[in-house]
Design a protein around this nucleic acid. Structure first.
Length: 527
RNA sequence: CGGGGUGUAGCGUAGCCCGGUUAGCGCGCCUGCUUUGGGAGCAGGAGGUCGCAAGUUCGAAUCUUGCCACCCCGACCA
């Protein structure tokens, strides 16, 4: 059943065609490349989760660590995260936010202030109970010093609402102190039972924005604004189309009045929550007693939001674009946008070719393109081709003695695996446009895939059939109750991913209970 | 925390049932020569507390017991 789904998906992916190159006609014809399957590397069809793990490891993104559930993010994987951080950080600053940093440790008592919040996180908290080790009595290693017990235990933050709101109490007295628009880049710990690289690890990196406002309207506006920032980032930087929506009660953040989200569809037909923005109402203000004197002189509770995205986005990036030849990265987030591989036989040829390659590299760098000239003599060209293909580098330039002679260069794009030869002096003109084409092409391909895999279900039978045979997003009527969602989840493992933020009202009957419904919502099996 | 599985060189593995040479192979690594436009070839070489601990035995990677670690499937989750 699973294999059928993936076969379908692959064929859709293959169906997608090369987008027209807007960056002017190419001098030479396009050479199609015969592909052979990467050896000892799984395909999506064979085993999707093994394929995913192979990419993470072989592309040098991350590896398992000595600590169960925690990964080591390797330089190449971290470089992708840094690209994400840079783009998001700018968007946060542009919308008026500032960065700050709050403690990793949270006094245990803080958690119990907000009932839903404790309830939601209690089961996955790591707790610090002691602050000292001592030599083991038997002389072998060290043990916890039982005399060094903390008076109040410290929870390692699974999220920072509590410590931040405890702090905001000190910061807010008057309406003049509002709004507070703060973000922090941090690590958090959620003690998960089952983990997967980037998608769910016990410790992960993220950003969490925490804002305080004088009015409900302003806080809601902020919640929507940041949801839009996330959707913008996902679509324009990650090249992943997302649905914006509201979470059902079951999926809502612990302590929020309303959780908004962006949902993306992965190549295996499963949904992935890529970002959340929460309207917290006055819940945390009341729990931490954060009040301000209004213009009119009355004491009011502050209105709050919080919003975040995590290193999980790296997982989304992998699963949205990559193929059976390895990682595929959108140019905007690729640490290396263009790699140059020299070809040579003799020492003289090496010098000659590399000199030319350096010239090209410099010119492209001047245009702001992230170029890497791999002039290592320790690896062969063919090896390098496969290496960079596997790492998802969007463009590859190959330059050899024949090119130097004719002033040409071979250009290969990672997304379509097409090669072309063109005149060297046209590179600076062609490359930037090609990178844009790749960026757009990846988005269009992902969008086409999502559209192909979004289906309406009008009966329970149809619902189950789509889920089992095709996967993807299912648009169906739902009676809006937590009980129905729970039952659907138990029977099919599918959940309400979101109630879309569009106005597509349509009267109908709940696909499960038959009760009246005003609109279709998005169901899917999810990561 | 339940159910199943696996631990042998950096990685992947054979050998284990049926105890008995120097624990074999592939990839990777090192040296040299020839190579270099899609994962090079040949020759030589290095690398192992066989997960840990006890036991059975003349003898244990192999049999027994206990422990540990990891993976997969469930419950939980960004």
């Amino acid at each position: 059943m699973f294999i059928l789904v993936v076969t379908k998906l692959v064929s859709i992916a293959e169906f997608f065609l090369f987008l027209p190159d807007s960056s002017a006609p190419l001098k030479t014809q396009i050479l199609y490349q015969k592909r052979f399957m990467a050896k000892d590397f799984s395909t999506r069809e064979e085993n999707y989760s093994k394929w995913y793990n192979d990419i993470v490891q072989r592309a040098g993104l991350a590896e398992n660590s000595a600590v169960r559930g925690c990964m080591v993010i390797k330089p190449y994987g971290y470089a992708i995260w840094e690209k994400m951080q840079a783009a998001l950080d700018k968007m946060f600053k542009d919308t008026g936010h500032s960065n700050a940093y709050f403690p990793l440790f949270i006094p245990k008592s803080f958690f119990s202030r907000e009932a839903d919040h404790v309830e939601g996180f209690a089961k996955e908290c790591a707790v610090v109970t002691h602050y000292r080790l001592k030599n083991a009595p038997d002389g072998r290693g060290v043990v916890v010093d039982e005399t060094a017990k903390l008076e109040e235990e410290l929870v390692i933050r699974p999220t920072s609402e509590t410590i931040i709101w405890d702090t905001y109490r000190q910061w807010v007295q008057s309406y003049r102190d509002l709004p507070i628009l703060v973000n922090q880049w941090a690590n958090v710990v959620r003690w998960e039972m089952r983990t997967r690289m980037f998608l769910r690890t016990a410790e992960f990196l993220w950003q969490e924005g925490h804002t305080a406002h004088a009015t409900k309207e302003e806080a809601l506006e902020e919640t929507y604004r940041m949801l839009d920032v996330y959707a913008d980032f996902a679509e324009n930087h990650m090249a992943i189309p997302v649905l914006k929506g509201i979470k059902s009660e079951n999926e809502r953040f612990a302590g929020a009045l309303e959780t908004f989200c962006i949902e993306a569809l992965m190549q295996d037909g499963k949904a992935l929550q890529a970002g959340t923005s929460h309207f917290l109402g006055q819940n945390f203000a009341k729990a931490f007693d954060v009040k301000f004197a209004s213009k009119e002189g009355s004491l009011e509770y502050v209105w709050a939001t919080s919003w975040g995205v995590s290193t999980r986005l790296v997982g989304a990036l992998i699963m949205a674009h990559s193929d059976d030849n390895g990682l595929v990265l959108p140019p905007k987030l690729a640490p290396i946008q263009c790699v140059i591989v020299p070809i040579y036989k003799s020492r003289e040829q090496y010098d000659q070719v590399c000199e030319k390659a350096r010239e090209i590299s410099d010119r492209l760098q001047e245009q702001g393109i992230r170029v890497k000239l791999d002039d290592r003599d320790t690896h062969k060209p063919g090896w390098k081709f496969n290496e960079y293909e596997f790492k998802g580098v969007p463009l590859r330039l190959v330059i050899g003695p024949r090119d130097v002679e004719k002033s040409t260069v071979e250009l290969a794009r990672r997304d379509t695996l097409e090669k072309q030869v063109l005149a060297m002096d046209r590179l600076t003109e062609v490359v930037p446009g090609l990178l844009e084409d790749i960026q757009k092409g990846l988005y269009q391909k992902a969008l086409a895939f999502r559209e192909e895999n979004t289906r309406e279900a009008n009966s329970w039978e149809e619902f189950k059939e789509i889920l089992d045979e095709k996967g993807g997003f299912i648009m169906a009527h739902w009676d809006g109750t937590a009980e129905t969602e729970q039952k659907i989840k138990e029977e099919t493992k599918a959940t309400v991913r979101c109630i879309p933020l569009d106005d597509n009202k349509e009267n109908g009957r709940c696909v499960y209970s038959g009760k009246p419904s005003e609109r279709r919502v998005v169901f899917a099996r999810a990561y």
